[in-house]
């Protein structure tokens, strides 16, 4: 279990992480979600004892990372796949890490096998593609067969095959009973990968809940109805007290599901041309929740052009 208590990191005047408290439960995949610059990586570096918190603490199974003995046996982490010397071979990179925690040399070949890099183990890591580098980073994280795993944006920049591989891998790790804490700025990705979600924005906690709860709370379920007798239908629906909104030639109904609307239409003898459930997009929900907490806003809002647009040089 990972536990953050009042975790705070200050760089000069800016608060990168602001009094952040959350827990990452054992044996599940927990997503760490937030827009770019929300403080996810800083938080992960503090959990790993690389950055010193300005306040509060991060504990792994009740201990500070820097108090762990041979920490690779307890916590594996991939924060950045590029943290490898480009002229060192994949095997040598894993070999020194294994040695520093007194792990057997044969474990290096085992993890290379798990991530499918055995064939290029002797090649210099600088020549690896991003996908291969990510695999090498995951191999390094798995070296000590740790119960707790941290991944920072593991699918960033990967091709679809790589994304699918990582996603399956996370599930496999959680199925083996490990604690997986994985950060992302993509809610759609997290909805597929994580069972629990810790959401932050501007270094502050926005919510911690199960992914299911978060998604259903965040997205509004509505039904789109089209009918040549829209007026009659609106009256009938109005009597039930649900909320209705016009959208072009159709009605958007919230608070009633498709089956009930269909039956209501049959009772009132209304012809239906469309009856389709609408799911609010995860991205929209995420934007609504974290909208105020995005650090670098774009200057121009959508569809809005500044009134005084003067050509350059005049």
């Amino acid at each position: 279990m990972i536990e953050a208590v009042g975790l705070t990191k200050r760089y000069g005047k800016t608060l990168a992480v602001d009094n952040l408290s959350f827990t990452v439960p054992t044996g599940r995949v927990t997503g760490f979600l937030g827009p770019n610059g929300a403080g996810k990586s800083t938080t992960m570096r503090m959990i790993l004892g690389l950055d010193t918190p300005s306040g509060g603490s991060a504990l792994i199974d009740g201990k500070r990372y820097r108090d762990l003995h041979q920490p690779l046996r307890t916590v594996g982490a991939l924060l950045d796949a590029k943290w490898v010397h480009p002229n060192r071979s994949a095997r040598a990179h894993l070999a020194w890490m294994a040695k520093s925690n007194r792990l057997p040399a044969k474990r290096v070949d085992e993890v290379l096998d798990i991530v499918g890099l055995s064939a290029v183990a002797g090649k210099r890591a600088g020549g690896f593609s991003l996908g291969m580098s990510q695999r090498l980073g995951i191999a390094a994280a798995l070296l000590g067969d740790p119960q707790v795993l941290l991944f920072d944006e593991p699918v960033n920049g990967l091709d679809p095959e790589g994304i699918l591989w990582i996603r399956k891998f996370m599930h496999r790790l959680a199925d083996e009973g490990r604690t997986v804490f994985v950060s992302s700025h993509l809610l759609s990705e997290m909805a597929l990968t994580a069972q629990e979600l810790v959401v932050i924005g501007r270094g502050k906690l926005i919510s911690q809940s199960s992914t299911e709860d978060f998604v259903s709370q965040a997205t509004e379920n509505t039904v789109r109805v089209r009918s040549p007798q829209l007026g009659a239908l609106r009256t009938a629906l109005g009597r039930t007290g649900v909320s209705i909104r016009d959208e072009g030639e159709s009605l958007i109904v919230s608070g009633m599901d498709c089956a009930d609307i269909g039956e209501l239409a049959a009772q009132t003898g209304t012809v239906l041309h469309e009856l389709s459930p609408q799911r609010g997009s995860l991205e929209e929900a995420f934007m609504q929740l974290t909208g105020d907490s995005v650090e670098y806003h774009t200057e121009i809002a959508e569809g809005q052009v500044p009134a005084t647009l003067v050509p350059a040089g005049k």
Binding site: R45, L48, G49, L50, Y65, R66, D67, L68, P71, L72, A77, L79, D80, K82, W83, V84, H85, P86, M97, S100, N101, A140
Partner: peptide
């Protein structure tokens, strides 16, 4: 300095949190 250049110093300190020993 190459450890700092390629950030492997972070892997080093992650594997051995006792930085002085490392």
């Amino acid at each position: 300095t190459t450890e700092y250049r390629f950030s492997t110093i972070r892997s080093t300190f992650q594997a051995t949190p006792n930085r002085i020993a490392a």
